[in-house]
């Protein structure tokens, strides 16, 4: 038997059933939460923190990762509050600084109006989102890659850094990788931030504290103002 229960999502009452994550419920109601390490068909990992949402009453809320946080009866969730938007932009700034060559990250940054990167670009090749590791295990029945070392040394590789016997060369790991695809300018870009597809920052966030909008890309209000 499925047990249905209600909770508040961005101010309105929604229904969910047990074992649904906030991300799933939000998706069901057409609210888009940006994700990076989450992928349908793979187990949620909760590593990238990009899917942050605010849970709890204003002033007493905390930020949780919606891909791993189960929806519960009566909770109050805000997916696009000022606090969330701010943290998300900060995260994206960090990601772009870590890996400026990734198209995926640049696109996300533009979409969320990241206009500057205040950190030193690192030129990393991996952001440890672990999609490839889970893809290999959970979809390709292989165990060819995994995490090695720990702390700042942590990286993803094959056992003993050699070609793994478990690898069937399916390419699934590259297929799901958010940083393998290079940004449009090619590998030798000059600026850390691409910004070619910069979206507009929702002006309603300042006025209403929360964005509740179905315009994508968001432009209408901005144009009206001008």
């Amino acid at each position: 038997m499925v047990i249905l229960f209600g909770f508040t999502l961005n101010g309105f009452e929604v229904l969910a059933w047990e074992n649904m994550s906030i991300l799933e419920v939000a998706g069901f109601y057409g609210i888009e939460i940006p994700t990076l390490c989450f992928m349908e068909g793979l187990s949620p990992y909760g590593g990238c923190r990009l899917c942050l949402v605010e849970v709890g009453p204003v002033g007493k809320s905390r930020l949780v990762t919606s891909c791993t946080y189960p929806a519960r009866e009566g909770i109050e969730v805000r997916t696009h509050s000022q606090k969330v938007l701010q943290q998300r932009r900060m995260l994206l700034e960090l990601y772009v600084a870590a890996c400026p060559s990734s198209k995926w990250l640049q696109d996300l940054a533009s979409k969320h109006h990241v206009t500057e990167v205040r950190f030193k670009p690192k030129g990393e090749e991996c952001i440890l989102c672990g999609r490839c590791v889970r893809m290999c295990r959970e979809q390709m029945m292989g165990e060819a890659i995994g995490y090695v070392d720990r702390g700042t040394q942590r990286r993803i590789t094959t056992p003993f850094d050699k070609k793994s016997e478990d690898c069937r060369l399916c390419g699934g790991c590259m297929y799901v990788c958010p940083v393998c695809q290079l940004r449009c300018q090619g590998p030798k870009e000059e600026s850390t931030l691409c910004s070619s597809c910069l979206n507009l920052y929702p002006p309603c966030a300042e006025k209403f504290e929360e964005v509740m909008c179905y315009m994508d890309p968001c432009a209408a209000c901005e144009l009206e103002k001008g």
């Binding site: 165990e143 060819a144 890659i145 995994g146 995490y147 090695v148 070392d149 720990r150 094959t158 056992p159 003993f160 793994s164 478990d166």
Partner: peptide
């Protein structure tokens, strides 16, 4: 030895290597 351990226990070699480096 680690390869043999993986075969005998059915634990993926990758996991063993992860532990060994952790």
């Amino acid at each position: 030895e680690l390869k043999r351990l993986a075969d005998n226990t059915g634990t993926p070699l990758m996991d063993i290597y992860s532990i060994a480096t952790f």
